[in-house]
Simulated scan of single mutants.
Amino acid sequence: MGLLTTGLAVAAGAGGAVVAAPVVLGAVGFTSVGIAAGSWAAGMMSSAAIANGGGVAAGSLVAVLQSAGMAGLGTAATAGVGTAGGAVGLLAALI
């Protein structure tokens, strides 16, 4: 595999992941107006609330994903998603 092809795969993976993250969050129910009723996110929130005695803990995965669904990804989250997508692109190029 050539260096140019590998670089393009990494860039496509990183860019694709950053673009797809908000779409995926909305599709599973973490929307800009709250968690969608009957969605996968609602089930996740229900499970978290049951496990925590009726509330969803601040900083939990549900809370972080809902924050990203409402406000978008912050700089650190965008970097993390891009890095993960780039790694997937690299692995795809090497296979």
Results as ranks from 00 to 15, higher is better:
Leu8Ile: 04
Ala79Lys: 04
Ile35Lys: 05
Ala93Gly: 15
Gly72Ile: 13
Leu94Glu: 06
Gly72Ala: 13
Ala93Pro: 11
Ala37Lys: 14
Ala92Asp: 01
Ile35Leu: 13
Ala92Ile: 12
Ile50Met: 15
Leu61Trp: 00
Leu90Glu: 02
Ala14Arg: 00
Ala57Asp: 11
Val28Gln: 05
Thr83Glu: 08
Ala17Arg: 01
Ala77Pro: 11
Ala84Asn: 01
Val56Asp: 03
Ala49Gly: 03
Val62Pro: 07
Ala42Val: 11
Ala58Arg: 10
Ala9Ser: 13
Ala79Ser: 09
Ala68Cys: 02
Ala36Arg: 12
Leu8Asp: 00
Ala37Thr: 14
Pro22Asp: 11
Val18Gly: 07
Leu91Cys: 14
Ala36Tyr: 00
Thr78Ser: 14
Val81Met: 01
Leu73Thr: 06
Gly89Gln: 05
Asn52Glu: 09
Leu65Pro: 07
Ala48Lys: 06
Ala48Gly: 08
Ala14His: 00
Leu73Glu: 03
Leu65Asn: 04
Ala21Ser: 10
Trp40Asp: 12
Val23Asn: 07
Ala58Ser: 15
Gly89His: 04
Ala93Phe: 10
Thr31Asn: 10
Pro22Leu: 13
Ala27Lys: 03
Ala12Leu: 15
Thr5Lys: 09
Ile95His: 01
Asn52Lys: 02
Gly29Leu: 14
Ala63Met: 09
Ala92Arg: 05
Gly38Phe: 07
Pro22Lys: 10
Gly26Glu: 15
Gly29His: 10
Ala71Leu: 07
Gly85His: 05
Ala92Thr: 08
Gly69Lys: 05
Leu61Ile: 03
Ile95Glu: 01
Gly34Lys: 02
Ala27Gly: 05
Gly80Phe: 09
Ala63Leu: 11
Gly89Arg: 03
Met1Asn: 11
Ile35Trp: 08
Ser46Leu: 13
Thr78Phe: 11
Ala48Asn: 08
Ser60Leu: 00
Gly86His: 10
Val56Asn: 02
Gly54Arg: 09
Gln66Ala: 14
Ala12Asp: 01
Gly86Ser: 12
Ala51Ser: 15
Ala42Asn: 05
Met44Ile: 02
Trp40Pro: 04
Leu73Met: 14
Val24Tyr: 07
Ala71Pro: 00
Thr5Ile: 12
Phe30Gln: 00
Gly54Leu: 13
Phe30Ile: 03
Ser60Val: 01
Ala68Met: 13
Val23Gly: 09
Ala77His: 12
Ala77Phe: 11
Ala41Asp: 07
Ser60Pro: 01
Ala79Val: 15
Ala63Pro: 11
Ala51Gly: 13
Gly85Pro: 07
Met44Ser: 13
Val56Met: 04
Ser39Cys: 12
Gly29Arg: 08
Ser47Met: 12
Ala17Gly: 02
Gly69Tyr: 07
Met45Tyr: 00
Ala41Tyr: 06
Leu91Gln: 06
Gln66Glu: 15
Ala48Trp: 09
Val62Arg: 02
Ile50Cys: 04
Leu4Asn: 00
Leu73Gln: 04
Gly74Phe: 07
Leu73Phe: 06
Gly53His: 10
Val18Phe: 09
Gln66His: 04
Ala79Met: 14
Val24His: 01
Ala51Cys: 08
Ala79Ile: 15
Val23Glu: 10
Val88Arg: 01
Gly16Gln: 02
Gly89Glu: 04
Ala92Asn: 05
Ile95Thr: 04
